[in-house]
């Protein structure tokens, strides 16, 4: 092959394997996979499954950083396997399921906890006023759009949960993505549901479990910056608290 771009090299993969029917605990298994240098880690896993070991279990769908299914620990760092390029990993690549989530099988984790938390924060528009079709569409200025657009980029890939040590230590913590999404809707000019969401996120297991490690924002593949969202929720919740308590004293 003359084109350097298409050069094939043997890549050493160490993949964490766990079969719930036969294994007491997960263990690393080594594979040598012939890879094109321009591949991503997901391509290497696909080759492995197609040619070397069809029993390997992992999730993926879009292969283009949109679906958020292929999150895994790559050399200890939460990554989308479709965004981790082989050319950035010269040595052996260690691939494990996302940290902090139970392992279902091989690289597949149990995401039930995150799904339940996502539901709790009501990540959808809750209109403040009932609106009929005759009222026409909602109007939103570019300025109003900018207030939440960044937080709307979340693809629910859960890398931030795998990065957040507080979630690892306190699994009750609602966590970065869910709170950032609550913030996304709170910031939306069309929304009137903030009070309902505050009941979930302005709690001890909500935003107040966050200690601003900032790891969530460092690993986010979509630059959502959940850590920023959580700090803003803290500031707003603190203002709420002082208003609720001191204003009610003033009124009395």
């Amino acid at each position: 092959m003359s084109d350097n771009r298409m050069e094939v090299r043997q890549v050493e993969l160490e993949v964490l394997r766990y079969n719930p029917e036969t294994d007491q605990e997960p263990k690393l298994q080594k594979f040598t996979v012939p890879c094109v240098n321009e591949w991503c880690v997901l391509d290497a896993l696909n080759y492995l499954k197609d040619n070397l070991d069809p029993t390997l279990a992992y999730r993926w769908s879009c292969h283009m950083q949109v679906c958020g299914s292929c999150g895994m620990m790559i050399n200890g760092e939460p990554k989308l396997a479709c965004k981790a390029m082989l050319r950035d990993y010269p040595g052996t690549i260690r691939i494990e399921p996302l940290a902090h989530f139970p392992v279902e099988r091989d690289l597949v984790t149990v995401a039930d906890d995150f799904m339940a938390k996502l539901k709790r924060v009501k990540p959808y528009l809750i209109p403040g006023q009932p609106r009929t079709l005759e009222d026409g569409e909602y109007k939103q200025s570019p300025e109003q759009l900018k207030r939440y657009r960044q937080y709307a980029m979340c693809i629910n890939c859960m890398l931030c949960y795998a990065a957040c040590p507080e979630y690892g230590l306190q699994p009750k913590f609602i966590g970065p993505a869910a709170i950032a999404l609550a913030h996304r809707y709170n910031q939306d000019s069309r929304d009137g549901g903030r009070d309902e969401r505050q009941e979930e996120i302005a709690t001890n297991e909500g935003v107040w479990e966050c200690t601003f490690v900032g790891a969530c924002s460092e690993v986010c593949p979509k630059h959502v910056d959940p850590a920023a969202a959580l700090q803003q929720v803290k500031v707003a919740s603190t203002v709420d608290w002082y208003l609720e308590h001191f204003m009610s004293w003033v009124k009395k």
Partner: peptide, 15 residues
């Protein structure tokens, strides 16, 4: 889940 009273301390932490 009740809302947290941590803001009273967090206010002094932030300031």
């Amino acid at each position: 889940m009740a809302k947290s009273n941590k803001p009273i301390i967090w206010g002094t932490f932030a300031a």
